Every structure is written in structure tokens, then in C-alpha cells.
Amino acid sequence: MNVFILEDKWIEQRYLEQTLRKIQTELKISKMNILPFTDVDSLMDELPEPSTGNVYLLDIEIAGNKKAGLQVSQQIRQHDAFATIIFITVHDEFLPTTYKFKSEALDFIAKDHDNIVAKLKDDFVFIIKKQHQQQPVQWLTLKTSAGYLKEDLGNIYYFEPNPTNSHQSLLHTIDNQVLTINVTLNELENEFPVLFRAHRHYLINPLKVISVNLKHHTLRFKGNDQDYPFSRLRTKHLFARLKELESPLKII
């Protein structure tokens, strides 16, 4: 777990560090990297890879700028959708303003109250619980002309052959991107058994299937209203795979 502190007053910074170490001991958190910063630029230069293990404790007023923490929270959220943001400040009048910055903060703790330790501990209990509930991301490392692409399985709908190059495939993602991959469907199927060969021309992500039309032998993906064919010969195998995954499924 990485905890980033943005606080320009040294004594307040030290207090937060000591509080975090106490919480680490009480909650038996095996690893907690505490990284304190006194200015926004230094913090922004050290932003890590997006992760549920990143926690940001932000003071709102930094170096006289009464909205510095709010502004940096917006940049953090744009960079890291998984991180936890907690505001600790004397400016509790800015609480409604946090929603305008869309930082999706977990908590807003007033410095002048005597419950900082208790509230932070409750927040970290919530963070740990959320991390345990989080499904692990499954990454597919795919060869491209530019090198290698690391793609989250959760972002993939399906692969199909590249009609202009028999040695390549086209990856279709949930955000409507079409990416060229320098391997065939057969190679992908052999390397990534999590994918399913629904049709000669389609290697799908079965986790995204939400409905199957038995009359027309088509299927649909979550968030996509287009019909995709599957082979009649693969019907039994398709249902067996979906049953294994315990996926919510509508049969038409």
C-alpha cells in the first residue's frame, strides 16, 4: 500500500505519518509506504501506476492556494481511477466543492476535530475490505508492430482475423477501439485459454456475454447491442463455458 501525503506544514505532516504507522500496526497492514510531500509539483512528479493500493491524504490549502488540494485531486483521479482520496483540512466549508471537482473522495476530515485517528482508521478498514473484494485484473500481453500491448481482459470483447493480413488479428475493445495484433486467432486461442472460439472468425471474451439467441445462433456482449454469430457446432461448448463462469445469461 502506498500512502501519499500532501501537507505543507511539517508538524502536521509528522502527525499524519505517526498516525498512519499506528493504524498500520493496529490493522496489521504488512506493507505501507508513506510518501510525504509539501508541494503539488513534487507529488505530481511521483504519481505511480494506477492501483487500488494507492491512497492520497490531501490538505486543501497548499502554499496559500486554498483550492490546491482540490485541483490536484482532480488530476489524480484522471490519472488513477482506482486510488483512494481523503481530504484532511481546516477548510471544511469546501466539502460541497469537492463534488464539482469529481475527485470521488472517500472522506473529508476536519483538522480541528479530535477524531482524526478514529476516522482515518475507519477509512483504512474500508480500503482494505474493498481491496479484498476487488477482482484481480487478468492481463493479456499481445504482440503488435510497435512491440507489446498489455490489455486488461475486462476491456476485451473479441478478436477477429485481419482481412488484409492472414498473420494478424483485430482486437475489439469495450471502448470501441480496434487494435491490430501480430498473431492469429489460433495462436491467441492456444496462448489464452480464457478466450473462447465461438466461431471460425470470432475468438470472444466469454465473461462479456450476456445473451444468447438460439434461433439465430447469435450472442451479445454487455454494453453492446450488436449481434455476433456463433457456430451451431459450438453451442454445447459455449453453454458449458458460460456455466463454468456462472455468468448471468439471457437465453432467447
Rank of each mutant, 00 (worst) to 15 (best):
Asn2His: 13
Asn2Cys: 05
Phe4Gln: 00
Ile5Gly: 04
Ile5Trp: 05
Leu6Arg: 08
Asp8Met: 10
Glu12Ser: 13
Gln18Trp: 06
Arg21Ile: 02
Gln24His: 11
Leu27Cys: 13
Asn33Lys: 12
Pro36Lys: 06
Pro36Arg: 04
Thr38Lys: 13
Val40Thr: 14
Ser42Asp: 04
Met44Val: 02
Asp45Lys: 11
Glu46Pro: 05
Glu49Ala: 03
Ser51Thr: 07
Thr52Lys: 10
Thr52Trp: 01
Gly53Lys: 09
Gly53Ser: 08
Val55Trp: 05
Glu61Pro: 01
Lys67Glu: 07
Ala68Ser: 15
Gln71Ser: 14
Ser73Ala: 15
Gln74Gly: 05
Ile76Leu: 10
Asp80Cys: 06
Ala81Ile: 11
Ala81Lys: 14
Asp92His: 14
Leu95Tyr: 10
Pro96Gln: 06
Thr97Val: 11
Thr97Phe: 06
Tyr99Gly: 05
Tyr99Thr: 03
Tyr99Gln: 03
Lys100Val: 03
Phe101Ile: 06
Glu104Gly: 06
Glu104Tyr: 15
Ala110Lys: 12
Ala110Ser: 14
Asp112Thr: 10
His113Ile: 10
Asn115Glu: 06
Val117His: 08
Lys119Leu: 05
Asp122Ile: 02
Phe124Ala: 01
Val125Arg: 13
Lys129Ser: 12
Val137Met: 08
Val137Phe: 00
Gln138Cys: 13
Leu140Lys: 06
Thr141Val: 11
Leu142Trp: 03
Thr144Gln: 07
Ser145Lys: 11
Leu149Met: 09
Leu149Gly: 02
Glu151Phe: 00
Asn155Cys: 04
Tyr157Ala: 06
Tyr157Leu: 12
Tyr157Arg: 01
Tyr157Trp: 10
Pro161Glu: 02
Asn162Arg: 02
Thr164Val: 01
Thr164Gly: 04
Thr173Leu: 02
Val178Pro: 03
Leu179Arg: 12
Leu179Tyr: 09
Ile181Trp: 03
Asn182Thr: 08
Leu185Asp: 07
Asn186Arg: 11
Glu187Asn: 07
Glu187Cys: 02
Leu188Ala: 00
Glu189Tyr: 11
Glu191Cys: 07
Phe196Pro: 08
Ala198Arg: 05
His201Glu: 06
Leu207Thr: 14
Lys208Gln: 14
Leu214Phe: 06
Lys215Leu: 00
His216Phe: 04
His217Ile: 02
His217Tyr: 12
Asp225Ala: 14
Asp225Phe: 08
Gln226Glu: 12
Tyr228Phe: 05
Thr235Trp: 00
Thr235Leu: 01
Phe239Thr: 01
Arg241Gln: 10
Ser247Thr: 15
Leu249Phe: 06
